[in-house]
Amino acid sequence: MKAFTQLDGLACPIDRANIDTDAIIPKQFLKSIKRSGFGPYLFDEWRYTDHGEPGMDCSTRPLNKDFVLNQARYQGAQIMLARENFGCGSSREHAPWAIEDYGFRVIIAPSYADIFFGNCYKNGMLPIVADEAMVDRLFKECEANVGYRLNVDLPSQTVTLPSGESFGFEINATSKHNLLNGLDEIGLTLLHADEIKVFEEKHKATQPWLFA
């Protein structure tokens, strides 16, 4: 997993509440047996005016010019501004894969769906929860100012606005440590393999039918 420490990046506003994972990456792209290559299909049904299928060359597809990701001023964006309950719906990790593959490393929203939120950390992305008033302000400033950038600093857990003002965000210690160091969770968990084995034996003794 890629480590994340600090990012000074262009922000892009996706102004819609309850964006679901079907919108982030439509189901036809879930047929892939790979983890990479989903970026060109991010928000496929909003981004292009034709019907997308896996394997299509997206550089020749007709763009929906009204969609924010297609606007010149947001090319190269790495920080996504989003609204409440972002990533609701299916557990597909293809959603954070697509967002990350496109180039985003940070999402800032008032709230997220639980499964999506956890999936972000596992892919080296930082989902930041900010209060609604702050998110609203970021949307307004971002839309009003071409080239609007934010500075996100994980060690100090702060986001700094172009004005120099900043706000803090919460993250639990384990997720922060793993993200800062780009650690593989499976390897870390297997350090506790003996504890798992002890638990398993005890569990088997009390509910043997679970192991039949």
Partner: peptide, 10 residues
């Protein structure tokens, strides 16, 4: 409950 693919591997 549902899990993501990284968790499936975990």
């Amino acid at each position: 409950h549902g899990i993501g693919t990284s968790e499936v591997e975990h």
